[in-house]
Design a protein around this nucleic acid. Structure first.
Ligand SMILES: [Mn+2]
Ligand SMILES: [Mn+2]
Ligand SMILES: [Zn+2]
Ligand SMILES: [Zn+2]
Lengths: 143, 143
DNA sequence: TGTAGAATTGTAATGATTACAATTATTATA
DNA sequence: TATAATAATTGTAATCATTACAATTCTACA
């Protein structure tokens, strides 16, 4: 599940991708924050300790990591991409009230219907929208 | 599954949404083309017969229809929204070679894990990416 | 140490979508 | 039917995430 930085470093070396200071910081941030941040959020968080960091570098790094399958790009909203260091199959739930994104497990085998038998599946994505338990109970209180 | 224009007209009337000429044409186009078009594609297709049509109207119409749950917004790529007149639960497969988007059935009950038991699910989305049978066989020929 | 190649940076460009104000169409009312 | 109020459409400008690009800086290797 949760990947270790050391393992990722190994994979990067194996794929001949140079691990610069900036790239390392982006990776660390993704590993520590499983909140599926946007590029902007990553930039803001990293910029505090790295005032010279460029937003372009954040985007470049995320693209390289995604192309190497070390990061998964999540598109839920259409006007923003989010990034997930957990690349294994799992679903995402976005709460429409607080905006939080939750992971949940998925049995992908049960999804493979006969209609897809002749298709080659490379990437699988599932996301739900609705209300998280916290926000549901908050609404109850207001009533 | 495939909705009829008459049924949609009824629903619009029930929801007090005025069915203008432009909105009707957008709906007709979505019903006739199950290719999950973008707003741009809809605009180009409709503009031939309706030179006065504005792209803003296409966007406005799609937003209203989506808010009324008569159209489903599909975000697969992140830099473009696509629209589907079929609002019932089903999955989408996008071929990375030809770009076509295919529908496939989904057993959503099998997705409801205990982790989501306290969440209120309002919208469910599944999309896969990969290669369609046609493009797979085309690759074989090249070899 | 010098140099070629790669990474980073800052800025400008792109492109989808939205905001807005003016115009046009529809509906309700007299 | 004429009039006024309301709603929809249109064209243009603005927004905002992302990308392109050229200049600068860094890294690895001889
Ligand atoms: Mn996740
Ligand atoms: Mn569909
Ligand atoms: Zn919530
Ligand atoms: Zn294909």
């Amino acid at each position: 599940m949760k990947p270790l930085l050391e393992d990722i470093k190994q994979e990067l070396k194996a794929k001949n991708i140079y691990l610069s200071h900036q790239r390392l910081k982006v990776l660390e941030c993704l590993i520590q924050n499983h909140c599926h941040p946007t590029a902007e959020e990553l930039f803001i968080g990293l910029h505090k300790d790295m005032p010279t960091l460029s937003k372009t570098t954040v985007y470049n790094t995320l693209r390289i990591l995604a192309e190497s399958d070390l990061v998964r790009t999540i598109t839920i909203e259409g006007n923003e991409s989010r990034y997930d260091i957990v690349t294994g199959d799992h679903g995402h739930f976005k709460c429409g009230s607080c905006g939080m994104i939750f992971d949940f497990p998925i049995d992908f085998d049960s999804l493979l219907t006969k209609e897809l038998i002749r298709f080659k599946i490379i990437e699988k994505n599932i996301y739900f929208k609705g209300l998280c338990p916290e926000c549901i109970s908050n609404k109850q209180k207001i009533k």
